[in-house]
Design a protein around this nucleic acid. Structure first.
Lengths: 289, 289
DNA sequence: AGGCGGCCACAACATAGGTTAATTGGCCTG
DNA sequence: CAGGCCAATTAACCTATGTTGTGGCCGCCT
């Protein structure tokens, strides 16, 4: 949707596209962003972009590929905190932290840009609108982690799994990585288990239930979601937390910079929240049919 | 430590103290902060400062008292995402979000300041250093939530509980709310259960184990931690994620504003991380003695 | 004073999910 | 082609945690 008019040789990067959802970028801002992504490297799968306990180095921006952010206990138990997709930033505030409290590891070949942490401070001083947009992106990430916390704390294995699949579907469609309800999930069941706080065996059981019920299909790393609505219902998925609603007007208005657009909310998507009253036992019964 | 020279009639608020750990505030910045906290209200316990699904209103700063941030499923299951303590901010980026994906409810009588969301945008433009410091505070909060995710996903009930208690101890001592290893925990077991993803009954069992082992004592809402080291060991607590190390120099240097302090790291605390190799079964055996 | 509701405590039982182990099928490498 | 490794799969069994139910304490209301 919010596609900016092409400006010279600048290609819109995922980060740019992401921020465009919340801000109408000026040419100057676009150039600054492009400049941040000037130094690019390619990393193979299973590379640590960051290691828990180590000192931070540069700030990085994922331009292509998948990675995971994860934390480990001394005895090896591990929790995947989030999936890192194109447009996501690693170590944004690293200049303020002594050392990393989590690791980031690639799942696929990945293209990353990196730049010196000081440039963040520079951005806060010279491009306050960009800084605000990035801070916003960080808040959105926290919302995702909080929702996963709700999953691990209060959803059953089946619900959690369904919920995660719908979340990924939604997040990936925003960056055009979903076609026809199927997408590539470059992930072993072990990683899924670590993301959902389950054992490998139980993830396997749970996926089979979902497959048997016809809600999803799996062949290799390609997953097809046959019935998003029902899958979302199984997972008690309410996309409120993803804050996907695009509102570039909103920040514009707060900053009141280019034009003073008025508060017409016509373009706002309206999702209704499924409010079923449920009794405690038989949480997974949406699948029992 | 980093106590700013008293500047006229301005009282240091918790937020101010918090930010002082990471930035040497100028008088002008202090005044701006004080101005943000000009409109103050008092709320009784069990008041919703924010309700999931509702539209955001003002940005709020907790000046005194406890609150919880929590999310609920349609059927009533609930997860406490975090505890909100003095100096914490509610709805910082609300101008960017359509509606709240979580609730905030007071646990004690609370004193809150509130101001219009636009002032955040204003701050990004006029006080970039403050904006950066606040963004940092947000990142720290995310780190806390991520650590709790690790707890729910991969720690046993006993470990989780111990971990949370140590975390609260640490966070509260930063704001001088701990004396002699004891502090007030204005929380029912139900809330503890919702924070740790456990049932009330099981929290009760777990607290009793901790009490029986002599690690903690409970009388009413006062909790005494008798052996922090061992409690931390039971909870596999590694305070890295709290990012407590005070480094006002760090941001200063990045912004290179008042004086250009050099990179002398003499004041940096050094905690070593306990790296015990543990075998999978008997995770809770640190208590079995 | 009596009754009511919230919170804590504990016992008895039920189950979701963990653990162990064995089997299979790629896929790489020598 | 054999051997080996890694991921997926499934079965059998086990346990940490959830559920239900009861009683006691305490503060509050009328």
């Amino acid at each position: 949707m919010t596609r900016a008019p092409a400006s010279r040789a600048l290609d819109p990067t995922p980060l740019w596209l992401k921020l465009s959802n919340y801000l109408i970028l000026s040419d100057e801002e676009k150039m600054y962003l492009a400049d941040l992504e000037r130094t690019i490297a390619r990393e193979p799968p299973r590379t640590d972009l960051l290691q828990q306990g180590e000192r931070y180095r540069d700030v990085r921006i994922i331009r292509d590929g998948w990675a995971i952010r994860h934390k480990a206990l001394p005895d090896g138990r591990r929790q995947v905190v989030n999936f890192v997709l194109p447009g996501d930033i690693i170590g944004m505030y690293c200049m303020l932290f002594e050392s990393a409290d989590h690791s980031v590891t690639t799942l696929t070949p990945v293209e990353v840009a990196s730049f010196a942490p000081e440039r963040i401070a520079e951005m806060f001083q010279s491009f306050p609108r960009l800084a605000a947009a990035l801070a916003w992106a960080g808040a959105r990430e926290e919302a995702i982690v909080a929702e996963r916390l709700l999953s691990l704390g209060r959803r059953t294995a089946l619900e959690r799994t369904a919920h995660l699949l719908v979340e990924l579907l939604r997040r990936l469609s925003v960056v055009n990585m979903v076609t026809d309800g199927h997408f590539v999930l470059p992930v072993t069941q072990e990683i899924l288990a670590d993301a959902l706080g389950l054992s490998i065996v139980h993830i396997n059981r749970t996926l089979r239930r979902l497959r048997d019920s016809g809600l999803i299909e799996l062949n290799g790393q390609r997953i097809t979601v046959n019935d998003v609505r029902q899958l979302a219902s199984v997972g008690q998925f309410d996309e409120l937390y993803l804050h996907l609603i695009r509102a570039p007007r909103r920040l514009e208005r707060a900053f009141s910079v280019p034009r003073h657009q008025n508060g017409n909310h016509a373009d706002r998507a309206h999702q209704e929240r499924a409010h079923q009253d449920r009794t405690h036992p038989d949480r997974d019964d949406r699948l029992k049919a």
